[in-house]
Design a protein around this nucleic acid. Structure first.
Lengths: 228, 228
DNA sequence: GACTCCAAACCTGTATGCAGCTTAAGGATT
DNA sequence: AATCCTTAAGCTGCATACAGGTTTGGAGTC
């Protein structure tokens, strides 16, 4: 085959792509909470580039629905509506079990080590909660799980829904800190068991279970009185 | 709620977004078969704009994996690898049944009329096959079905996988013309029945069934000897 | 004749300038 | 004092110019 010859240049990301990842992460991490206005000129100054790559980056993530750009006004980070949150979570509930069934890659020694490290870090949160650290641990966990997915399409979708759900979910986490920390430790405990047994299917179902829990928390603390 | 006030400007698409849709359609319709080089300057001249909106449009569809841009070389339409095709089809097989289960919108009179029109047009193909018309009918069918999906996330994913699968699938259709035309008529017949009964769930399963058939054809005629 | 090396052509990536749109503030009028 | 209108500031959308990278073809050499 002529394509996929990435031997010479493995992953030389262009400036715009790097910025794209950074901006998306900032939205997910609530560094840019909903309502934040992303000014191209401002970001350009921060990254030391012109407006062009900034525009590229924002344009590339626009399909996730997390930002809205209007001419003459600006680009603002939008909070997903209650209906959209429901849609994303309903989808994640369906996708989770597929993680283990759609040609996953094998679990390596490294995966187990990462899992253990995450559990250690999560335990610390139970005694001294830190919203930022909670977000980072969760993010690393999702990087790990996503990497287990062998089906590229599912991997892409799984990551897309994670990004869409993240900011809302992290918003709740700041309200129910201890509860969330304990839930994370429990989840990581189960995941480590599955990792050691090499059972990716189990990981899928564990995810499905805990997404359900998270969904319930969001419904309780955020969507309780909102309408359609 | 403060957002979603599209009353004043319903859908004023920017130039780049219009071009984005057009380019993506050309890729799906095989107007740009795999290997085609998309030169920004050339497209800019055709659409009567500068390179900037063209770049925007291409950048926005890059996440589908249908194009690959390399600095100094150009942007080329890529054929999905055998593994990627498998991934996309495996995913579509899973997504199809969800069409009817994840909060679909109701079926209207208009939907039934569109379905009937499509069936009429498809029947013509059985006596006089025309690859282009086959593609267009299929496209209109997918627009219809996608519009039935109430869950926005699923709708987005369903459309993404359609775009990814389309060009490969249409490539096969040009080889097995009569077989494909008859299959389309059969599919549309079933779909019209489901439409008249107002049963979106049935439509999901009909899709699932016929995607399976299409997958088999692709495996037989395209992936038979290719490796991983 | 075959091979090497260099240069020109061509493409994308980025910077910058301008036009159009939106908003908000301030002054004039009622 | 309230309201309307004008004007200026700020942002995005687009056009254009330049820089960096890649390929290709031909001249020169062995």
């Amino acid at each position: 085959m002529t394509l996929s010859q990435k031997s010479t240049a493995p992953d030389i990301k262009t400036t715009a792509e790097t910025i794209q990842t950074e901006i998306l992460q900032r939205i997910c991490f609530l560094d840019y909470p909903p309502g934040t206005q992303l000014k191209e000129a401002e970001l350009a100054a921060e990254f030391g580039v012109s407006r062009t790559p900034i525009r590229d980056a924002i344009g590339r993530i626009s399909h996730l629905g997390l930002v809205e750009t209007r001419n003459g006004v600006g680009t603002v980070v939008v909070a997903l509506s209650a209906a959209q949150i429901r849609h994303v979570y309903d989808m994640r509930l369906e996708l989770a079990p597929m993680i283990g069934t759609m040609s996953p890659r094998g679990i390596t020694e490294t995966d187990c080590e990462i899992g253990q490290t995450l559990l250690q870090d999560a335990k610390v949160l139970c005694s001294a909660f830190d919203s930022r650290k909670y977000i980072e641990i969760n993010h690393r966990l999702h990087v790990l799980i996503t990497s287990l997915i062998g089906n590229g399409t599912l991997r892409s979708f799984w990551w897309q829904t994670y990004c869409q759900a993240a900011s809302t979910w992290y918003l709740v986490s700041s309200q129910r800190d201890l509860e969330m920390a304990r839930a994370l430790v429990a989840e990581l405990g189960e995941i480590n068991t599955a990792l050691e047994l090499g059972d990716v299917t189990a990981i899928g179902f564990i995810q499905r279970t805990h997404i359900g829990y998270g969904y319930q928390r969001i419904k309780t603390h955020l969507l309780s009185r909102e309408g359609e």
